[in-house]
Design a protein around this nucleic acid. Structure first.
Lengths: 141, 141
DNA sequence: TATAGTTGTAATCTTTTTGATTACAACTAT
DNA sequence: ATAGTTGTAATCAAAAAGATTACAACTATA
C-alpha cells in the first residue's frame, strides 16, 4: 500500500513552476519532461492545483504560474488538492457482526485512535511549506 | 487510497482472542463470524500474528490464544505484523529527468519530510496498546 | 483572421492491487 | 478412525491506479 504518486508528482510540478517559472514557459509538456510522464497526467495535476487556488493556468496560450505565495503553501495543501486520501486513511471490513461484543464495538474502540494517527501524518505535512522545499533545492544546486 | 482492511481486521481478531478467548474456543470460523468475513482471511491474519510472536495457534485441534501481554502489543506491532505498508508510504513516479534541476533533486528535497510524516503516523500507532482498546471496550459494555 | 500551440477532459486500455473463495493436505483431540 | 480444524496454494472477481489517445475549445500573434 502506497499513497498515490499523484501527490509527489504535484509537488514536483509546483516546484518546477515556482523555481523555473521565471525562466521558462511552464507548459504541461515542459513539466511532463521533467517528471518523465505523460503530459495529460500533468494537466490533471494542474487542474487540481488551480481548483485549489494555488496556481493559475492560461488556457489556449498555455503556461502555469504561481498564485499563492510559496510560504503559504504546505505539503498538506497539495495533498488535499490532489485528493490522495478521500476521508479516512484506514479501511474497515464492512458490516461487522452486531451480535458480537467485539464486532458491535470495533469502530467505537478504534476510530479515534486511527483518526489521531491520520492527524499526526497530516500535521507533519502541514509543517512543511513549498518555500522550505525551494530553499533546500537552492542549497543542492 | 486507503490502508488495507487487513490491519483493522487483525486488530478485531486480536481483540476477540484477548477478550473472548477465556470463554470460547477462538477458531477462525468463530472470529470470521464476528468480523463477517471469509474464515480463510482470518487464518491468514492469524498466521501473520503468530509469525510476529503475538499469539499462538493450535493446528489440528484448533483455536488461537494470547502469547504476548496485551500491554506489550501496540497498534504498530499489528500494523507491521500484517504488512500494511511495505517500506515507504509515499509513492514517486520513477525516473524523473536527471537533466532537469527539479527532476534531479526531487528525492533529495522530499524524502526526509515524507519520512517524517510517515514516522509521525507510526509513532501514534505505537502509543496505543491492545490493553488500551480492551479497557475502552469494557467501558462500552 | 488563419494558424500554431496549448489546455481541459472524456474515453479507453492496461496493469496492479486487493479481496473473496475453493480446495485440499496435514494435523490433533477424543 | 473420525470429526473438526489449520495452513496454504490456486484461482477468480472487483476495484484502483496509471497510461494513453483523441479532440473540442481557447488564445497569442503573424
Amino acid at each position: 500500500m502506497k499513497i498515490t504518486s499523484r501527490f509527489t508528482v504535484a509537488v514536483h510540478t509546483l516546484l518546477a513552476i515556482y523555481v523555473l517559472g521565471k525562466e521558462y514557459k511552464m507548459t504541461s509538456d515542459f513539466i511532463a519532461s521533467s517528471v518523465n510522464i505523460n503530459p495529460v497526467v500533468i494537466r490533471r495535476a494542474l487542474s487540481s492545483l488551480k481548483a485549489a487556488g494555488i496556481i493559475d493556468v492560461k488556457a489556449g496560450s498555455g503556461g502555469a504560474m504561481p498564485v499563492k505565495d510559496a510560504d503559504d503553501i504546505t505539503l498538506y495543501d497539495i495533498y488535499t488538492a490532489v485528493d490522495c486520501v478521500e476521508g479516512d486513511l484506514f479501511n474497515f471490513h464492512e458490516n461487522p457482526n452486531p451480535e458480537c461484543l467485539v464486532g458491535k464495538n470495533i469502530h467505537a474502540v478504534l476510530d479515534t485512535h486511527l483518526a489521531d494517527a491520520q492527524a499526526a501524518l497530516e500535521n507533519e505535512l502541514k509543517s512543511v511549506t513549498l518555500s522550505d522545499l525551494m530553499e533546500r533545492l537552492s542549497i543542492l544546486i
